[in-house]
Nucleic acid binder design. Structure first.
Lengths: 339, 339
DNA sequence: TATTGGCACTCGGGACATTCGAGTGCTAAC
DNA sequence: GTTAGCACTCGAATGTCCCGAGTGCCAATA
């Protein structure tokens, strides 16, 4: 059974190691942290921790380094978080206050998160499943080009350009637009495909080909939203933290370019302690992420959790700070989307 | 005066160094490149080149490495380019064929360019100066929220959300929209601010506050387009090429995060030989780019040069390949935007 | 005059030996 | 349960040596 002090020692080791990037010895430990005991006692505790595989000595006679399991215990017992400094808070606020469109808000939020944490930050686009169609707009761009705009109730707009094989008249566009709107307005996005099933029967056979081209575009637009998008920032931080990865960081870079992988990872995450989900080192089965930690939290749109945001970095990261930052950005983002 | 063969030697040194990343000696040179002379002769040539500061020896007795000046001469004399392989060409085509919206096209193009060159690729958004207003759409999103859509003739759409301080009626929106459209349709974007100068006088004093809020948003939307945006891809490649930079790469990373710097750099570039602009190493006055090369080319929208694309990487890059790639992507991009 | 073979010379880097010290584990005493 | 003391370990830093790729130079040659 682990003593209370042993846990404190573990905590100190993690803190020290995160700060110095060097294996921590018993002496430096008693020097900088005020345990009331001697280094020999700490050594005993460290022996215990090592038995429990919470820390490990890289070389026979050198300081100790936390294991994944050690980090895990550390974060699970992590009571008080490092509160964000006031400049940090104001950075978030000023970055996110202005009422911009969704793209802008997410782009800024992800940058702030990357900056605050010095890690790679990512934010999923809100899922559209529950959003409803506010209106469908058709804007003629040239003789046979029409722009389809799908306006959703959370102020998102999806656009798609349609190239008709033949010229299209203004009246025809107006007619289709009116009929589409009466059909779709207020309906949930998921029901759109089945709603437009028989739509083209409303039109004379001569114009059906044009209508069906248009419907194709509509379906495509809806589908495009199902494949979830992701914004990423701070890939540069990876290079800064390169020293924290013993092996090559290329697998990580590749995972990031392949956003699919990140989306899957985020979706698999479940929030746990402190409302934040964590996968530490080998807890990621994915090869190439063995030395990385992924952190995530959900955020809300109209008081409903719609997507996740998070970050990815070396296992040796400042958990306390990063958890605070992820929480804060998630909270602010939710607040903005609610308005 | 430099002999003809000396130039060939320089060319060979550059090629060899680019490939092997190792200083090039006279022996390896005669081995792999079929000059009809002995290594001693090559050594004489190399001495000349060194006198001209085109190459330099890192250590007293080791092979030579091209200087910035050497690279410059190399590219200026670069006659034949390495043609893209057919898989490379088809990569570009398949990536860029589908008719998507501008965001999508640029995002894909920049990724292709990064992939082809293994460098950091960037593409400026097309300038809007000459584009014309096709229509202005106002879509009501909630009781006092309206979405302003500015549809331009090159199928770009800019959107901005307006929060009115009081509720807004559908008729009012329709009226404003109709009047705005007659005023602005077909007009150049640059003239919009002055055109709407007295617009609010068309309305009863009671609704003028709402109108002016709307006009503010319109001006903002127009302005937002003047600050040029940039898409970047392949930052991961930087880490892969890290070995090519003797100093830290953090200044580079910072420049990339601060897109403003990149935009300025791109704007300063002037295309030269082969239609591509180059800044090699210290030719960039900017600190932190002393070991980097920036390459750029313009691309066209509707047969008019509207913006630049380019890449950034270590001076020790494959110029021949990269110039081909930049040219090719610029050409394809122009072709797509023309359609 | 341009080219070449020959040769002495240089110097970076790898192999190996040595030292230093931070840190450990253990034991005996408190 | 804690502590002082001590022998021990091993990584990292330092020093020495040597090898060989590569150079510059010179005298000989076509």
């Amino acid at each position: 059974m682990l003593q209370n002090r042993s846990i404190e020692v573990l905590r100190a080791i993690v803190q020290e190691y995160i700060q110095t990037r060097e294996p921590v010895g018993s002496k430096t430990l008693v020097d900088r942290h005020d345990f009331g005991v001697s280094s020999a006692t700490i050594r005993n505790d460290m022996a215990l921790l090592e038995e429990e595989q919470l820390i490990v000595a890289p070389h026979t006679s050198s300081g100790r380094v936390p294991t994944d399991k050690g980090y895990r215990l550390f974060v699970d017992r992590l009571a008080e978080l490092k509160p964000l400094s006031s400049p940090e808070r104001s950075a978030i606020e000023t970055f996110l206050d202005s009422s911009s469109d969704l793209d802008e808000v997410l782009a800024r939020a992800v940058k702030v998160l990357a900056k605050l944490t010095n890690q790679i930050a990512m934010i999923q686009y809100p899922a559209l499943g529950s959003s409803k169609v506010r209106s469908v707009e058709l804007v003629s761009v040239s003789e046979n080009k029409v722009l389809l705009l799908l306006v959703l109730d959370n102020a998102r707009i999806e656009q798609h350009q349609i190239d008709f094989t033949s010229g299209i008249s203004g009246e025809f566009i107006a007619e289709v637009r009116a009929k589409l709107n009466t059909l779709l307005e207020g309906r949930s996005l998921t029901t759109v495909p089945e709603l437009i099933q028989d739509f083209e029967n409303n039109f004379a056979p001569a114009s059906r080909s044009a209508v069906s081209q248009l419907l194709d575009a509509l379906v495509k637009t809806v589908d495009a939203n199902r494949t979830e998008k992701l914004v990423v920032a701070g890939t540069g931080n990876l290079a800064r933290n390169e020293g924290d990865f013993s092996h090559s960081i290329t697998p990580l870079l590749d995972a990031i370019e392949e956003q699919v992988v990140l989306v899957r990872l985020l979706n698999e995450m479940q929030s746990e302690h402190l409302g934040v989900g964590l996968r530490i080192g080998r807890e990621n089965q994915t090869d190439g992420l063995r030395e990385a930690t992924i952190m995530s939290a959900g955020y809300q749109d109209q008081n409903q959790e719609v997507a996740k945001l998070g970050l990815i970095g070396p296992t040796r990261m400042d958990y306390s700070l990063n958890i605070s930052a992820v929480q804060a950005v998630a909270r602010y983002l939710s607040k903005i989307l609610q308005a």
